[in-house]
Design a protein around this nucleic acid. Structure first.
Lengths: 119, 119
DNA sequence: TTTATATTCAACCATATGGTTGAATATAGT
DNA sequence: ACTATATTCAACCATATGGTTGAATATAAA
């Protein structure tokens, strides 16, 4: 059995549960950015974004590199890997449904083919 | 570009951010269960578990089937699929790192092989 | 009908979350 | 030295979260 660090998953899923933080991660997926640049597109104060960054940092989803007064943030996606691995245990539950659907589609297609053959 | 329903992701990740709720999902992965049975292993009141179930239900992660006074809960993993698809956009970031690590391991192994050859 | 069981509801509490504003701090530029 | 910029800190606020307890509701069983 795989062991999952409960607190790490709490923090990771918790960090991902906010749309602002997900958008920040999307920004960082394109390139590293400083706090001010990250904050610009968000309709909230710089301090609010700063707090979101601290949440992401505590979850290990971003890393901070100070260069003078400018803090450059970088995406660190490894905790997501853990989260995805956790979710993946439930994959069969939605794929099960997909299988049913695909079988249904296949049945339909077979019928249609037979009808085509009858032409 | 894929569209992600922000509120659905909020609810899904939010629901997954609690260890009790993750354990409940794990219970339901084995078999459907009623509220009382689900609550038994958790060190908290039945009402507390009942609330967690409502959170999971609102996130679409469980479905409830009433049969008389007994509510049977069933896992509904489809929202997780959305969540996983969202996370999957960041896969290259950790796989990138993994590649680096694997290259490093390969370099080590090559060295060791050379040493072995020297014996 | 009475009693027991399954579940939720309502009120409450402590703490967390997500936002604000104004002040503090640190570094850069002139 | 002075001024401007980047970022955080601190205090505050409203609402959400995760728990409790006791009462309410609905169904089952005696």
């Amino acid at each position: 059995m795989v062991e999952y660090s409960s607190k790490l998953l709490d923090r990771t899923f918790g960090a991902l549960a906010d749309p602002t933080r997900r958008r920040i991660l999307a920004q960082l997926a394109k390139s590293d950015e400083c706090v001010t640049d990250l904050a610009r597109p968000h309709a909230m104060s710089l301090a609010a974004v700063s707090k979101h960054l601290i949440v992401l940092e505590k979850a290990g989803l971003v890393k901070r590199h100070r260069k003078g007064r400018v803090h450059s943030l970088a995406l660190e996606a490894k905790p997501m890997k853990e989260a995805q691995a956790w979710i993946d245990r439930y994959r069969k539950f939605w794929e099960g449904n997909l299988d049913q659907f695909e079988k249904y589609l296949h049945k339909l297609q077979t019928k249609e083919t037979k009808q085509d053959d009858d032409k």
